[in-house]
Amino acid sequence: MPYKVIALLIYCLFATSSLSYSAPFKIATFHFPPYEYTTDEGITGISVDIVKAVFKEMEVEFKLIELPWSRGLRAIKKGNIDCFFEVLWKQEREAYMDYAKEVLMPETASFFVLAKSSIQFTRGFSSLAQYKIGMRQDFSYGSSFDKSVDSNQFKIIIKRTKNEDLLRMLNTGEIDLLIGDKYGILYLYQRTFIRHKHAIKRLKPDVEDTPSYMVFTKQHDLSALRDQFTKALRQFKADGRYQRIINRWEKILQQNIIENTPP
């Protein structure tokens, strides 16, 4: 009899565990327009539409939520969420998150300055070492920039959790440059420029093109879900559905995303 009781307890334990980690899967993203952001109608954006379409193709139930970036990293580490996107690769993150084997969305990091600024960027970070540079907390902008920050190549790095704060600081002169996504910063500026005194411009060339991914917590065994997502995403790219989603968003954003500053 005791053995039967123990066996029953073990069965219940594993059954409960299995139910806890099955669909609907809890997927989180963060506020990063135009890729992912929340409106009155819910969470939307370029990457959001791709993720929704891929999971629909997979016929897997999910719940999509938005979290602040740093909180999302903590949640995926603890296993409070199953998936998180769009995340750039960093070696230390592999200890607690499992990356999909296909790129979800390439991101391009660029420097932004006031339109009247004479600062130039010529691929070498040494030319910017004396300036105050703003960046998002716990954010990666590609391996080359990250290594320069880690090696203290820049004199002053100022970190904030929101790009809105960095734009304000750029306009007030608290920082000389900010680094951010080339579409995301201009998209945000177009919607907030009335509150800013000065126009901004994007420096060329870009800093780095960096792939971003869907990641899965390592607190649970989600390898099958990871592989299924990878396969479906690759098929979306192969048959053109991925590009059609991007093309549709480019039309929506055409009047808002420009190379330099609003007229």
Score class of each variant (00 low, 15 high):
Leu8Ile: 10
Leu13Pro: 03
Phe14Gln: 11
Ala15Cys: 13
Ser20Ala: 06
Phe25Gly: 13
Phe30Met: 01
Phe32Ala: 09
Phe32Leu: 05
Pro33Gly: 06
Glu41Phe: 15
Glu41Leu: 04
Ile43Gly: 06
Thr44Asp: 12
Lys52Ser: 06
Ala53Met: 12
Val54Ser: 05
Met58Asn: 12
Val60Met: 09
Glu61Met: 11
Phe62Ala: 13
Leu64Lys: 11
Lys77Asn: 03
Asn80Tyr: 04
Leu88Ser: 15
Trp89Val: 12
Glu92Asp: 05
Lys101Trp: 09
Glu102Tyr: 04
Met105Arg: 02
Ala109Lys: 10
Ser117Gly: 09
Ala129Met: 01
Gly134Leu: 03
Phe145Lys: 15
Asp150Pro: 00
Gln153Gly: 02
Phe154Asp: 00
Lys155Asn: 15
Ile158Gln: 02
Arg168Gln: 15
Ile175Leu: 13
Asp181Trp: 05
Ile185Asp: 04
Tyr189Ala: 08
Arg191Pro: 02
Phe193Val: 03
His196Gln: 11
His196Ser: 14
Ile200Tyr: 02
Lys201His: 01
Leu203Met: 01
Leu203Asn: 01
Glu208Asp: 07
Glu208His: 07
Val215Arg: 11
Gln219Asn: 14
His220Leu: 12
Asp221Gln: 03
Ala224Lys: 08
Lys231Val: 06
Ala232Lys: 14
Arg241Ser: 14
Ile246Asp: 10
Asn247Glu: 13
Ile252Tyr: 08
Asn260Gln: 06
Pro263Tyr: 15
